[in-house]
Write a protein that binds this DNA or RNA. Structure first.
Ligand SMILES: [Mn+2]
Ligand SMILES: [Mn+2]
Ligand SMILES: [Zn+2]
Ligand SMILES: [Zn+2]
Lengths: 139, 139
DNA sequence: TCCTTTTTGCAAATAATTTGCAACTACTAA
DNA sequence: TTAGTAGTTGCAAATTATTTGCAAAAAGGA
């Protein structure tokens, strides 16, 4: 996925600018397969920029649907680059001890969510789901 | 559920004290069926105490297994009183617009969690799951 | 009632995230 | 190429949730 080119296009269309920090952040995200915290992204940048700039960039990327925000329950947002056209919905398995992360593609059946929506008269359901456990090393 | 008496017993056993703030917090939690944020608990107390006291009390109650902490993804912890012996594991359906909360007892099959554990060599799995949608009023 | 240990209130410290603002820069229209 | 304009950035200060140090106050047992 050439997200850099794709990114450029999307930005231009929205009257946004392609700047050094933004490209660097994208490169950093591309190099990772797991969600990264803002601090981690910031620390990984070769040509550093202000932390606030990273925060602002992540909001922008999220609004553009290029990154997905995840919440592991530790009070720190984490972001993962998502493929073009994908909504990025998936889950993780996190070691309670060493914080190792495993990407999980599986999810429970759509029926459960549908039933919950119907039974309560809600629409447009989504969900947040993360698994926790002890990894092989930490058991 | 007479959580006050139960509470008293458990505290005594642990060399902890039964104080006004603690009883008041328990009473407040008992009056609610949905998770309450610390601020909400604090504001609901008839005889007010310091916010820090509420934070400390919630940690204690959590350690004692009397309340369960929930995370709706808005950066604010919420707590719900749980029945004796129960681990309090359950989920919620939250309106993205007005924040109405519905208690959800259903959960996906144990098999899915088991499979995820096995496939990755993890043990002691748990999960956090919350549903979001638009309530009848907000659609 | 007295003593010891636990709690509390208060203020200050943390930590993640946001925001105001002036200086700066990417694009673009000429 | 060169302004001109709108979008960006750095920096410092503000916000928000939560934690913590500490001395004064309260609880429970002897
Ligand atoms: Mn992922
Ligand atoms: Mn609940
Ligand atoms: Zn581990
Ligand atoms: Zn609603």
């Amino acid at each position: 996925m050439d997200s850099l080119r794709q990114f450029t296009h999307r930005l231009r269309r929205r009257d946004r600018r392609i700047t050094g920090p933004r490209q660097a952040i994208l490169e950093t995200l591309r190099a990772q397969e797991h969600p990264l915290a803002i601090r981690q992204i910031h620390d990984a940048l070769h040509e550093p920029c202000d932390l606030a700039t990273v925060y602002r960039a992540m909001h922008m990327l999220e609004d553009m649907g290029m990154v997905k925000r995840f919440d592991f329950g530790d009070g720190t947002a984490r972001f993962e680059l998502i493929a073009e056209g994908d909504d990025g919905h998936h889950h993780h398995l996190i070691c309670r001890n060493c914080a190792t992360v495993v990407e999980i593609e599986e999810c429970f059946s759509k029926k459960l969510e549908q039933r919950i929506a119907n039974q309560n008269g809600f629409t447009a359901l989504t969900h947040k789901l993360e698994f926790f456990g002890l990894c092989p090393t930490c058991q």
